[in-house]
Amino acid sequence: MQCCGNTHISLMPWKPLVSYCCRSLSAPRPRRLVVSAAAAQPTASNSGDGSNGGDDLSEVLNGKVAKGSGTSARGRRLLKIREEKRKREYERLHNYPAWAKVLEGACKNDTELRAVLGDSIGNPELMRKRVEERVRKKGRDFHKSKTGSVLAFKVSFREFVILFLHSYNPVDSYIWFELYGSPSDQDVDLLGSVIQSWYVMGRLGAFNSSNLQLANSAMEYDPLYDPDKGSNVMPSSFHDIGDVEFQDNWGRVWVDLGTSDFFAIDVLLNCLTVLNSEYLGIQQVVFGGRRMGDWEEGMTSPDYGYKCFKI
């Protein structure tokens, strides 16, 4: 073999892939290993046992993996993820806003607040945006207490008794409710449903003190009720009722009690007592009167705080 005018001397004839030029015998030069493409492929034994020795060698030859690094790409990614997680945990423990901790604590006992925050818990910035969005939508309703009032409401009558007994005047047959604040839609539905149920029972003659057979007798193990006596009592029934209206923190309902007696008033006040203590705070209930507070006749625009429950 000729190379640069010199003859090749094969030092290892059984490996034809490696040879040295005769010039290297007189002047030392860096040796270069020549590997054929066939030698870079995995052998049949390597591919059969499931090892990836051939693939690793190819990656080394192509420069994809740094020799001598001691770590794989997957290992470096896992290390980076663990480091980022550690930094987030450190930030949460040392730099977490105090108000965010308060909100997270309140979520444990407040289902409404937990629904507002949703999956933003742990992300103060997203939590702040969720709360601001809720306040913009609900306004004062977001801060309104839903647990009622610990104080009993005041009850007063303004000519209602005289009109009821003598010269009944439908114009003055209003029942007024003063709340602690402007009612939400839920509050309107709640109080309106109570008044509606009260009217339905009155319409069916439920409030008739002339037929209180069990209430006026000593309760026994097996009390007796006389249905004939109950059917012979003069009927007692409501005649008519209007819608429950609200302007700001005042509500009213017009009602024609018909032949019902004051037993109907007692039943209504009993219902409102529990409603006030458990669900919706009421400052006072007034029977009778043409106008209360800042009520304006004809102001039925929702823009001015008007709300209505249809009966």
Rank of each mutant, 00 (worst) to 15 (best):
P235C: 05
P235R: 10
S236P: 06
S236V: 10
S237G: 13
S237N: 15
S237D: 15
S237Q: 15
S237K: 13
F238W: 10
F238S: 08
F238I: 08
F238H: 10
F238V: 09
H239W: 11
H239E: 14
H239Y: 14
D240K: 14
I241Y: 11
I241W: 12
I241N: 11
I241V: 15
I241L: 12
I241D: 08
G242D: 14
G242H: 12
G242R: 12
G242A: 14
D243W: 02
D243Q: 07
D243M: 05
D243A: 12
D243F: 06
V244I: 12
V244G: 07
V244D: 06
E245M: 14
E245C: 14
E245V: 05
E245S: 09
F246T: 02
F246W: 10
F246K: 01
F246P: 09
Q247F: 03
Q247N: 05
Q247Y: 03
D248Q: 12
D248F: 11
D248M: 11
D248E: 12
D248K: 13
N249T: 03
N249P: 00
N249V: 03
N249I: 03
N249Y: 04
W250H: 07
W250P: 00
G251A: 14
G251T: 03
G251W: 02
G251P: 00
G251I: 06
R252E: 06
R252T: 08
V253P: 00
V253C: 08
V253N: 02
W254V: 01
W254N: 07
V255A: 04
V255D: 03
V255Y: 01
V255L: 06
D256S: 10
D256M: 06
D256I: 01
D256R: 03
L257A: 09
L257V: 10
L257D: 05
T259I: 04
T259P: 03
T259R: 00
S260H: 02
S260K: 03
S260Y: 00
S260G: 09
D261Q: 10
D261K: 14
F262G: 09
F262W: 09
F263K: 05
F263A: 09
F263E: 12
A264L: 03
A264E: 01
A264F: 00
A264M: 04
A264D: 05
I265L: 12
I265R: 01
I265F: 05
I265M: 08
I265Q: 04
I265T: 07
D266N: 11
D266M: 08
D266E: 12
D266R: 11
D266F: 08
D266I: 11
V267N: 06
V267E: 08
V267R: 03
L268P: 00
L268S: 02
L268A: 08
